[in-house]
C-alpha cells in the first residue's frame, strides 16, 4: 500500500503543479490584457457569440501560433493565456507519464506497462489529431 501511495502522491503533485502553473499563466495573460484597456474586447465577445460573424484573430490553433505571438514585442497577452491553456491540456498526459515512472520505481511492472500503453494511445491520438 505504501508503494501505491508514493505513486499516488507523485501523480497528484504533477496534476497540482500543472493546474497552478496554468492558472498563473492564464490569469497573468487576462490581467495584462485588461490593463492594456482590453483592445477589441467587444468585438471578441461578439465573435464568441457567433463564430460565423468573423474568424477571431485571437484564437490560436497551433503551438507555432502561440510562440509567434509571444515573440512579439510586447508579447500578446492572450498568447500568455493560451500558453496557460496548453499547459492545462497536457497536464493529464504528464500525470500518466509520472505514473509510468512511479510504477517502474516501485517495481510494479504490470502497472508500469498498463500506464505505458495508456500513454502510447494518448500520444497516438495526438499524432492522429496533428495528421488529420
Amino acid at each position: 500500500m505504501t508503494a501505491t501511495r508514493t505513486v499516488d502522491r507523485r501523480i497528484g503533485r504533477i496534476l497540482m503543479v500543472g493546474g497552478l502553473v496554468s492558472i498563473a499563466l492564464m490569469l497573468a495573460g487576462l490581467l495584462i490584457y485588461a490593463a492594456h484597456g482590453h483592445p477589441q474586447a467587444r468585438e471578441i465577445v461578439r465573435v464568441i457569440h457567433n463564430r460565423e460573424a468573423g474568424r477571431a484573430v485571437d484564437v490560436f490553433t497551433s503551438l507555432g501560433d502561440v510562440r509567434r505571438a509571444l515573440a512579439q514585442r510586447p508579447p500578446d497577452p492572450l498568447a500568455v493565456t493560451a500558453l496557460g491553456l496548453v499547459c492545462l491540456l497536457v497536464t493529464p498526459v504528464l500525470g500518466v507519464a509520472a505514473a509510468v515512472v512511479g510504477f517502474l520505481r516501485v517495481g510494479d511492472r504490470d502497472y508500469a506497462l498498463i500506464a505505458g500503453v495508456v500513454l502510447a494511445m494518448l500520444l497516438a491520438s495526438f499524432a492522429l489529431a496533428a495528421g488529420g
Binding site: 490569469l27 484564437v59 490560436f60 496557460g84 493529464p92 496533428a130 488529420g132
Partner: peptide
Amino acid sequence: IGITSAASAGIYFARGDIHPLLAAPVAI
C-alpha cells in the same frame, strides 16, 4: 476523465474551438 479528454483536446485546439477569452475564465 482528464486522461480520456486529453486524447481529444488537441483536435479542438487545432480546430480553433478553444477561445482564450472564454476558455481561460472557464478553466480558472
